[in-house]
Write a protein that binds this DNA or RNA. Sequence first.
DNA 1: GTCTATATCCAGATAGAC
DNA 2: GTCTATCTGGATATAGAC
Lengths: 212, 212
Amino acid sequence: MIGEPTRDRRGERRSATRAEIREAAWEVARANGVAGLSLREVAQRVGLRPPSLYSYYDSKNALLDAMFAQGCQTLLQRQAAVPLDGDPQSTLAAVLRMFVGFCTEDPARYQLLFQRTVPGFMPTPESYAIAIRNIDTLRGQLAAAGIEDPAHMDMFTAVAAGLTDQQIANDPGGDRWTRLIDDAARMLLTHTQARATHPPTCSTSPGGPTDD
Amino acid sequence: MIGEPTRDRRGERRSATRAEIREAAWEVARANGVAGLSLREVAQRVGLRPPSLYSYYDSKNALLDAMFAQGCQTLLQRQAAVPLDGDPQSTLAAVLRMFVGFCTEDPARYQLLFQRTVPGFMPTPESYAIAIRNIDTLRGQLAAAGIEDPAHMDMFTAVAAGLTDQQIANDPGGDRWTRLIDDAARMLLTHTQARATHPPTCSTSPGGPTDD
DNA sequence: GTCTATATCCAGATAGAC
DNA sequence: GTCTATCTGGATATAGAC
């Protein structure tokens, strides 16, 4: 008897088409904003009729979810590539640079992953689990830079989000805010290390259980 | 002969209806996001048929523009109410508190005024002029707190936007990031005053012509 | 000023032939 | 798997009667 073929050619082709659709969806999202993603336009870009997409993704939400998961996976890889030498300053700067770079290089992806601007989209638990890993990884990296206070972590995410947002909204394609990254890392580090000199305004109960 | 009436009752009524429509539009925008604003829903809320709205606003864009102008006007009033005592620290904290409070109290308004997420909307020159006044006012207030370096101003706007964004996206209705405002003001002030101690990484040509 | 009726266009999604 | 045809519903905007 002849055994089953080792390679699943059908599955490979299907998987490739799914990736092609997903890439086309990113292109449309970059052009129209994530909220302006339309399946018709995606279909046209890959040379299919709109209903044919449903053979690959059950719904628009399923497609968005795949994009969300892919974005989180990419971020995970970037996070793993950040060098963690012993120096808090360079570590913090490297993390900040990676994160702001990741966000500003694709505003549509930033919108899908971190803003709440998409109409009725909610990631599936499977995809969200990857986002959780992103946050846990960040937590570890900040700890490596000496930042463990939840309030300080929140301050870091605020600065990262702020640099990203201003760069995207007010100087797209430029570097008016991204060039402040090293300055911002210094500022954050000084702030986190200057606890003793200032009155403990809100340090008695800094964060409570962080549920992000 | 009888002169013209002193009060323009017709004009007053019309103006009131325009305001009513605008308020209904804000409600819809808060519910669906600014991008999800639909004239049908606005009309239903004010008890009119959709085409009747066109007697008050020439287009959806005209309505959005009126909302944009109104938001900028409100911000202008808030800005004028910020106390500018001589102390840089309390001044900076007051400005930051006002701004982040203004943004977080109405995310839809923040979206319309400061994000670029609305499909094809561009404010008219008249409305945009108010936004320019907002920025000029901010510039003056930061100067009163001793911040005049454009790079430091950009850092301020980044921190303000970051606190706002994180608060809205990850803790809507809470205070996980807004309670960091005083800390952030201290951090910013320390940073702007610590010029001499650090190497002038990017202070030789800090900002170039700021065109925001 | 408000209405009905309509124009035009787009969206996501499904049925069923091939 | 892909297609044609269609369903359902939504959008902005205009024409013209009253």
